[in-house]
């Protein structure tokens, strides 16, 4: 699907000259961002905190209105639709940072996965068999099929994230949008997460958009990377992330972005050397995002 010779497929998400200024802020949060997310690809949006990643994600999810004094300018389509309309149709499966849900809720895992798939149903109807089947399928896809009855508050960080992904899949998403997916997940959990995402991508062929400031998650799970610090700085495969690109992106503050992902990537090292930079000898310093899950 990545073959440049194949006939053009309309992009999953298309950004054209997108700019946005938060109300009351002097400078732009996003400036002239133009980018296509191809159907079926895994695109990582990498950038420092405050670089506009979350803003771009909010625009993609239709959470920031277009136009006017407080809106964004430019053009964005999600599978040919206006972002807000795409969300209303359930095309975009948003996987938020895990800390944002109210985990004290007396809900079971399958309750949580069923909710987005079933909230439009008539209040008099129980979820029909096809919804229940989709929920079962999504749970088994993320390896949680036997945990449907567990309370949502009793899961580990990694399990909760699987449930959130299953929830988006059960809702019928064609695009998974993951916001800082590795925050609060330990190193082993991150590895399992990358494997899970690769498996889902292989089996469903979904388009996956990952927003993160953590290079490891991007390097491990994406086909392409867009580096975003207000403007789009570069737009490459994870292997093309040279120290020069990263230094520009993060203003030389590489501690915390570079982890073992770069360390183990021999191609990156050789490519760095080919560009005249010494290979990155990133220490095994856990990034700021690498906290241990519960």
């Amino acid at each position: 699907m990545m073959d440049p010779q194949s006939p053009p497929v309309p992009p999953a998400v298309s950004y054209r000259d997108v700019s946005y200024r938060y109300p009351g802020e002097p400078s732009l949060a996003l400036e002239g961002v133009t980018l296509d997310v191809r159907q079926g690809e895994r695109l990582g949006i990498l950038g420092p905190n405050g670089g506009g990643k979350s803003t771009l994600l909010k625009i993609t999810l239709g959470l920031i209105p277009k136009g006017g004094a407080a809106g964004w300018s430019g053009a964005v389509t999600v599978f040919g639709l206006d972002p807000a309309e795409a969300c209303r149709n359930g095309i975009v499966g948003y996987v938020p940072q895990r800390t944002e849900a109210e985990l004290a809720f007396p809900l079971s895992v399958s309750d949580v996965v069923t909710m987005p798939a079933a909230w439009r149903l008539s209040p008099f109807r129980a979820p029909p068999p096809d919804v229940r089947e989709r929920v079962r399928g999504a749970l088994s896809l993320v390896g949680m099929e036997s945990d449907g009855d567990r309370p949502i508050g009793g899961l580990s960080g990694g399990q909760l994230q699987r449930v959130m992904i299953a929830r988006a899949i059960a809702a019928g998403a064609r695009l998974l949008a993951l916001d800082e997916p590795t925050v609060g997940i330990d190193a082993r959990g991150q590895h399992l997460f990358a494997e899970l995402l690769a498996d889902i991508h292989r089996r469903l062929g979904l388009t996956i958009l990952i927003v993160s400031h953590d290079l490891r998650v991007i390097a491990a799970g994406c086909d392409r990377v867009a580096c975003l610090a207000r403007r789009l700085h570069s737009h490459t495969s994870p292997r093309g992330l040279t120290p020069a690109v990263l230094a520009e992106l993060f203003s030389h503050n590489l501690e915390g972005v570079l982890g073992d992902a770069v360390h183990v990537d021999a191609h990156a090292a050789s490519e760095c050397a080919a560009h005249g930079h010494p290979p990155i000898s990133a220490p095994h310093v856990p990034g700021p995002a690498c906290e241990h899950g519960r």
Binding site: E100, E102, F105, P116
Partner: peptide
Amino acid sequence: IGWWRRPLLLWAFDEAAAPAFGV
């Protein structure tokens, strides 16, 4: 509450994600 229980619960459980699911 009975009529809107599903969207109400989805919103209450996960206010950040609910609008992205169209609630």
